[in-house]
């Protein structure tokens, strides 16, 4: 495996659309539940161990070589919010475009042909990792990190939070990110029925509320 390939894939500048999404942080800020670095850390930790773990395991499973279409179905069942399913597929389609330009592979082509409107983003990311010669833990790391870096970046813009504080939040979460990635990869090795389905009620509820806002800064 190439460690540098992991850096390319995990880079926030990887052109796959993530910059327009707050990972639920925008409604949390609007409702006053996230207002400073401490509440951002709490938000990120909660998201990491719920939606983050679930998504990381899907990505690890795709990187491991499990059937991406079955994983896409498993992702649907784990995403009761239609707003979040739409977001996941939209980002999956954008990730697919970037992936086929960076690490083209027949497996990516096959998934793109089977899901022209986009598969769930973690599944596409896992397959991208696989095409880049990366492993399940790498894919899980990428997704787990995205789960917290997206909200942190968004909160810097939404609250004008000191970017050093926001980045420090991410740095302090690093050991937990490692554990979640390991846990996700371990589950993926045991097959699709062992994948976690950890969920966060408030993320699901507020995603629907946010999708109906007439004016918002972030797409999700």
């Amino acid at each position: 495996m190439s460690r540098a390939a992991l850096l390319v894939l995990a880079d926030g500048r990887f052109p796959a659309g993530g910059h327009a999404h707050s990972g639920g942080a925008e409604p949390a800020v609007a409702e006053g539940r996230v207002r400073d670095a401490d509440s951002l850390a709490d938000f990120c930790r909660g998201r990491l161990h719920t939606a983050g773990l679930t998504a990381a395991a899907l990505a690890a499973a795709a990187a491991h070589g499990l059937d991406p279409l079955a994983l896409d179905e498993a992702a649907d069942a784990r995403t009761p919010s239609p707003a979040l399913r739409t977001t996941a597929r939209k980002l999956g389609r954008q990730m697919m475009r970037a992936a086929r330009a960076t690490w083209p592979s027949p497996e990516l082509d096959a998934l793109a042909a089977a899901r022209p409107r986009g598969a769930h983003q973690p599944v596409v990311l896992g397959l991208t990792a696989r095409s880049a010669g990366l492993g399940p833990v790498d894919a899980a790391h990428c997704v787990a990190y995205e789960t917290v870096s997206g909200p942190a970046t968004a909160v810097v813009r939404l609250l004008s939070l000191d970017p050093f504080h926001a980045t420090a939040v991410l740095a302090r979460l690093a050991p937990e990110l490692d554990r979640v990635a390991e846990q996700a990869a371990e589950a993926a090795r045991q097959g699709i029925d062992a994948l976690p389905a950890a969920s966060a009620p408030l993320l699901d509820i507020t995603a629907e509320a946010h999708a109906a806002w007439p004016v918002r800064l972030f797409a999700s």
């Binding site: 796959a16 659309g17 327009a20 939209k90 389609r93 954008q94 968004a154 813009r157 972030f218 797409a219």
Partner: peptide
């Protein structure tokens, strides 16, 4: 309409994926 996450220049230059969709 493409949503840009408060960074319209990113969406037309650095990460054009949403616009291409």
């Amino acid at each position: 309409a493409v949503e840009t996450g408060a960074c319209p220049h990113t969406a037309i230059r650095d990460d054009i994926s949403a616009n291409l969709e």
